Amino acid sequence: MSRSQIKDANATPPVKGILRHVKWEHLVAGVSGGAASTLLLHPLDLVKIRFQVNEGAATVGHVDRPEYRGIIHAFRSIQKNSGFSGLYQGVKPNVLGSASSWGLYFMFYNTIKTFMQDGDTKVDLGAGKHTLAASGAGLFTLVLTNPIWVVKTRLCLQYEATSTSFKSEKYYSGMADALFKIYKYEGVRGWYKGFLPGMFGISHGAIQFVCYEEMKTKYNNFQERPIDYRLNSAEYISFAALSKILAATITYPYQVVRSRLQDQHRNYNGIGDVIQKIYRFEGMRGFFKGMMVYLFHVTPNICIVFLVWEQVISYNKQS
């Protein structure tokens, strides 16, 4: 047997090779950061979704949509009609979805990235490979979590004054009931409504992570330090906020399209139908509905998530 054949025979299989780079602390960090940020900021997410699906008509089908004149008015209206707990409508699937999404995303992303670096964190992958790692992590995460996001959207759209008038299959008493009814009346396809625009959302995560990683790398290079040098909290927060704002500004319209496809009060004939109707009746502004409240929500959200993630990594490196 030749030397090359011996080397090939002893080579680690690709699957086992990548599995040895799995680090569960990234899952824990993402779950912790995602859960904490969502519990704090859910009311903003609730209002964002209601703005996204607002087509300008007070009545959609058999449901009267509440009219909001702005963010503050939305908070006051929801609290007036449903009390403080109304601001946390749909919080359970949101916490579960956010925690599991961030946990899985960080774990998948770090595993793919470390596999590409062959375990050497000082290797600079560059924008191309960072994009590949982020895209792969986003796809795996989306496949596993899309049903949770459908449930979260629908629970957030159970309007206070009209919830009792919904048809039985459209009213959900909670997360488990929503998962069951969606499957019963719509099948597995119901769990994956909004999946295709969610695929476009993978580009959001890719842009965000590439910008975040490249900013850290360039900053450490400028400071003449190794690229895996641990930064302070203010630096992590700054890079996280800047990368998120940039990604959100570029890719936001997919979120409006996804929310409308997941809305239980409207029926569209696919993505093309949603895009056509938004543009026809609401113009380009329709694709950016709720963006301001989204930025208010997502900027502190991402700072909390990334700070927790980086601190867990730093703790692990020290221990």
Rank of each mutant, 00 (worst) to 15 (best):
F281G: 02
C303P: 00
A248L: 12
M284L: 13
L295E: 08
T249R: 00
R285W: 05
I275P: 00
G272P: 01
N269M: 14
V256H: 02
D273K: 05
C303I: 13
R266A: 13
Q311G: 01
N316M: 13
Q264K: 15
N267D: 11
T251Q: 05
Y315D: 11
V257N: 02
A248S: 11
R280D: 10
Y252V: 09
I313P: 01
G283A: 05
Y294G: 06
I278D: 03
Q276I: 00
L295N: 03
F281A: 10
Q264L: 14
S259K: 13
M291H: 08
V298G: 07
W309N: 11
V305N: 05
T251P: 00
I245A: 14
G283R: 01
I302P: 00
I313M: 12
G270C: 11
H265N: 14
E282S: 04
V256M: 04
T299E: 09
Y294C: 07
F281K: 11
N301H: 15
L295K: 03
V308T: 08
N267A: 03
Q311I: 13
Y268W: 14
V305M: 08
N316L: 11
C303Y: 00
G286F: 07
F287A: 01
I275T: 06
V293Y: 02
R266G: 01
I302V: 10
F287R: 01
K289F: 06
V257M: 09
F288R: 04
R258P: 00
R266Q: 14
Y279A: 10
I302K: 00
V274Y: 10
V274H: 07
C303E: 06
V312G: 02
F287V: 03
Y315L: 14
Q262C: 15
Y252A: 07
L307I: 02
Q255H: 05
A247G: 03
M284D: 02
H265I: 05
G272R: 05
M284H: 06
R285H: 10
F306V: 15
L246I: 15
E310R: 12
N301T: 14
R280T: 15
M291T: 03
R280N: 10
Y254M: 08
I245N: 00
L307R: 07
W309C: 05
G290I: 10
Q311C: 03
